[in-house]
Amino acid sequence: MSTTVTPSRPGPAPGLPRAGRTAQRRRGQRSRSDLLPALLFVGPATIGFLVFYVWPALRGVYYSFTDFSVLSPPTWVGTENYQDLIQDELVWNAFGVTAQYVLINIGAQTVLSLGLAVLMHRLTTSMAVRGALLLPFLVANVVVALTWFWMLDYQIGIVNGGLDWLGMDRIAFFGDSQWAIPTIAMINVWRHMGYTALLIFAGLQTIPTHLYEAASLDGSGEVRSFFTITLPLLRPVLAMVLVITVTGSFQIFDTVAVTTAGGPVNATRVVYYYIYELAFVRFDFGYASAISVVLFLVLASVAFAQIKLLRAGESDLS
């Protein structure tokens, strides 16, 4: 969650900040003496960075070329894991199921959040409304999953009770392989809808209100203003929201783990869950690592494609 919260002022680029440069000049002879305190200040974080980010990332790549069961040291097998995974139907199934999940999840979530964000912007700015809509996002995935698991229960769940009352057939939301992925996707739409709406809402606030006033004077209605002003000007924000939500969506695990555990049959064996099973049930760390390398590459290309296609870096507002 926290990775998407961005300080409003980006400040100078990650290069040498301007403030730093002038200060360096101003303080001249003092700069050298900063090295010792700097080491002290940045030390703990750097150790954490090296030990828990850099080193494992390198180890991960290395493991993917080995046969490694955790119990005995890894043995180098070259590209065998990668050759295997191309022929592993479960890998293809995992990526297929995950793609299906991402499409339903992101599709529904983006449309609903955009709608809610516009309503928060044009209809009511009530803090209570925003607070209520954000609520599901603050609760753990596991809690959300179990609550819906109960509400969607085939026998005595309230949702099936409602379907009954409407004269419709009961649905085995988690037990039917046709329904399992859409169900899990919609549960997470429920959890993330308000949060995503707030992200988009923040983007909406950067659109100058005089544009709407001018459009309104020219006789443009709300709907027309939405398509001619809101949507085009929101594009960069929407693009970033999509990059972040799609990346997050690919990492679906918690909901699957506590509800269907990959089933029925392989209907919900998403990539994360398959990696988890390979590593911690079958102790095939080498193979699991190879799949995570592939997942990383897929994620990076999807993010890159989105940024290119949606021209996320440019704004039409100028």
Partner: peptide, 23 residues
């Protein structure tokens, strides 16, 4: 170093999770 820190933002958690478990 700061640039390196920021780059680590791009690494998906699963990538470091398995080796971290081993560690």
């Amino acid at each position: 170093l700061f640039f390196a820190f920021i780059t680590a933002l791009m690494i998906p958690p699963i990538f470091t999770t398995l080796p971290n478990f081993v560690l």
